[in-house]
Design a protein around this nucleic acid. Structure first.
Lengths: 348, 348
DNA sequence: GCTGCAGGGTCTTCCCGGCGT
DNA sequence: CACGCCGGGAAGACCCTGCAG
């Protein structure tokens, strides 16, 4: 008569007694193991349904040592790139039977990163994916050994696993595109210097320039935001204006486009602009933005594949951004193909 | 002498014996309970550090019945709104000692939503936040009783908890703004009819129009994407073009702006456009977009507050989007203030 | 071929016994 | 005697996995 005042959620034994079998049999049914007759299986299923039984995850992972959860360390998730990768990771993880526990970082300082990773480990994650292509965060992560598989995304691939798109060659192909249009003075509006992505793209710009015997031109830095692109665009001395800009991401390109327009500088008539990422809105910028498409979703999927050992590390055909040519790039003006720093008459 | 071949991770008793105390005491220290001297506390902490001991989360939650994890059901996270809310939720959750387990939905069909919620419950979450302001998803959720607190975001607040911004009155204030500029034929480019947000904004548009004795004008539907806004903009018969568009979100507004520009229709000279959300890029659209800012981050925080019972439901001062006036809205043209469907000469 | 018993995994909590000041 | 501190023991939370029957 022990009237349960607290309606405890049903356990394995409850199901067992209702179905008239032992709890082990129930366990076998739940875990889809052989050696259970169809008749018993059905009985058990009926009991499970009737009680709305759910195996207790805690007890289960205590017994098996598995938690089926993967930790994700992320920076700013409200940006298109990271959140798209997260979507890809989530899809693949769930398909593989894993859950994602997401922790975001306020900043990339050592204590913050350290605490976040530690929390994740306390929670019992079986692996960690670090969506933080930021040098200081990566340094911290490299010094911490967690005892579980860890993977960085776009981390330059120095230590441990790393999954990345080949941004350097993608950046180079952006420059190639501009060169093929006759441009010789090609500036770069880069992301923050302490972001790995920014570094790779910068490196690609440099190497492509060198390959064509062009001297390195104007180099500016923004913070990925449209505002910073705008500010950069307003700040350039008109006399030093290049004939083309390779911009580190689409948002900054948007800001730059606005600044150029305000200064009466036509795109692509006077200056060509090429972005990076291909956010869904890029096609509707003014003018439509030529850019490099990154397949973030695939990148996310690949993270899980690699973390789970579903495929060899650095598998065949590393993902390659693709050039999407739209209206913001065009041939260099006939009177402006000289490489020299000649005076450029123009009014603001 | 027992050479552990499998380097099992240290347990409570390991710490106890190393520190020379009982497991009781270790437990007390770990859980910050009183009745432990500072000296022993320090000894225990030293042992914990030395062994790099982490309490086993599974065992712990088996014993306490707490998992400290909250489930998040999300749709498309690569969009600015949802992902920003997620950031806010995450911040607040972690501050309160909770982890987030995120599950994304491929679609909003009953089986998909059902399975996702079920998975979350299997995982042992203590509460669920549904970031799916989609009618069919909400219907499914309403019929499922999970036995744990569940909260919808922007779900119209019909059943169970719901946290939302007052989108209807925000939409109305967008219309007010246009009316104050002299507009009388105000169209609406709405989101998909099965999204609650779209419905609220549509309702706000309607009621504000009625309040001013204006007849309901052109109503179009998009899918939130810039592309759909563009297509909508190209599809309008020139003769039926209103003097102002209230658009359901900024992305669609971006597409619409491009279409209008292509058709030689100046903004705001000929048509005013107002968006919704205030994505960070909106200021850099062409022209800068007048829009309604939503504080997604605060909304996320509020979800946790409410789920954890940290504050009364529907607390004072429900969050209110704020009108941000930029360059895409302006006074109606002098020759176009009549409400009638007069012919509008213009070339595509 | 199918089923059940016993043991184990880690932590919490309650009980109660001590010791020392 | 009281009170702060600590230990030993044991029950319990729920499930899994050999190994018998």
């Amino acid at each position: 008569m022990a009237a349960a005042t607290t309606p405890r959620s049903p356990s394995l034994t409850d199901v067992a007694s209702l179905a008239g079998v032992s709890h082990q049999t129930v366990s076998r049914v739940v875990n889809r193991r052989p050696n259970v007759s169809d008749a018993t299986r059905r009985k058990v299923h009926a009991a499970i349904l009737e009680l709305d039984y759910r195996p207790n995850a805690a007890a289960r992972s205590l017994a098996t040592g598995r938690t089926h959860s993967i930790g994700v360390l992320a920076g700013e998730l409200s940006q298109y790139g990271p959140s798209s990768v997260l979507m890809g990771v989530q899809d693949a993880a769930r398909r593989a039977g894993y859950f994602l526990t997401v922790v975001t970082l306020k900043d990339y300082s050592a204590p913050t990163v350290d605490e976040a990773l530690s929390d994740l480990l306390d929670h019992g994650v079986e692996g960690v994916i670090a969506l933080t292509p930021h040098v200081s965060a990566l340094e911290v992560l490299a010094t911490m050994q967690s005892g579980i598989p860890m993977l960085t995304v776009g981390g330059g691939g120095h230590r441990g696993g790393d999954v990345a798109l080949d941004q350097e060659s993608a950046a180079a192909s952006a420059v190639e595109h501009l060169v093929s249009l006759g441009h010789r003075r090609i500036a770069h509006l880069a992301g923050p210097a302490d972001w790995v992505d920014a570094q790779r793209r910068l490196a690609g710009w440099r190497s492509a320039l060198a390959r064509h015997g062009l001297e390195e031109g104007l180099l500016l830095h923004g913070d990925w935001s449209a505002r910073s692109g705008y500010d950069a665009g307003l700040g350039v001395e008109l006399g030093r204006l290049p004939t083309a800009f390779f911009v580190g991401n689409d948002q900054m390109a948007l800001g730059l486009l606005k600044a150029l327009r305000q200064r009466g500088c036509e795109v692509p008539g006077r200056v060509s602009v090429i972005g990076f990422d291909d956010v869904p809105e890029a096609e509707y910028y003014e003018p439509s933005l030529t850019t490099l498409r990154q397949e973030f979703h695939d990148l996310g999927r690949r993270c899980i594949d690699e973390l789970l050992g579903l495929q060899a590390l650095g598998a065949a055909g590393s993902l390659q951004p693709r050039l999407i040519v739209r209206a913001s790039t065009g041939p260099v003006r006939a009177d402006d193909d000289g490489g020299g720093p000649e005076r450029v008459p123009m009014q603001g």
